[in-house]
Amino acid sequence: MRWEHGLLAIGFVLLAIGHGMGLFMAPEEAMMREAGRILYAHVPTAWVALVTLTLSFFAAVGALWTGRYGWDAAVEATAETGVVLTALLLFQGSMWAKPTWGYYWDWDPRLTTSAILLVLFVGVLVVRRVVSDPERRLTVTAIATIVAFVDVPVVYFGVKWWRSLHQEWSSPQTVDSTMVMPLRIAAFAMLFISLAICVIRWRTILATVQAEATAPDLPALPAELSLAEKEV
């Protein structure tokens, strides 16, 4: 068993504890009542989605800087995990919006920039599938990731920059002290799970990329076949 498998197991145990506390032990939120319990699932997902996509940005810089496939594999591992977490984040948010705002979606700056972030990083993964040459793919993916990352600080700071329907940042400083512990435990749980998945994926992707990069070129066509093709 590798260390990331242990980290994954710890993450799931912590997630069960954090979610259990959020569902059954944390007090009801004053305004949102039971819907406020979505906080303990939604906010950690948001934090970790942005952290994962930020790691993708640093991996992209590393890939461009060094040209090493290890960084290239890290870009894909973190981008694909970040994309799934961002999609989950948007779903959780819409499920929270319905009972509190009265509708599932609003073209609010935070929601809109988050949706754009998802589209941008899906684009990164699509580009990665389209380019087959490993060297060219490394460069193109890294550039696309750096471009897509520009939206991450916009998502994070958007609630400060614009008047938004979405509430401001939830953190231990902005929520009641009784909510801090389940929020913190769930956040570390999601972080551990996300990091473990990224490392597991990194090993797999790196093996594949290295195999592609070191694969011998196809042999030249036999002389008879080449001749036959010319005659056709």
Binding site: L8, F12, A41, L88, F91, Q92, I193, A196, I197
Partner: peptide
């Protein structure tokens, strides 16, 4: 809504893992 959110979260993270 709360149950749907928590269930979706577990499905996604377990699925990813």
């Amino acid at each position: 809504y709360v149950i749907v959110v928590y269930a979706a979260t577990w499905v996604v993270v377990v699925g990813l893992a």
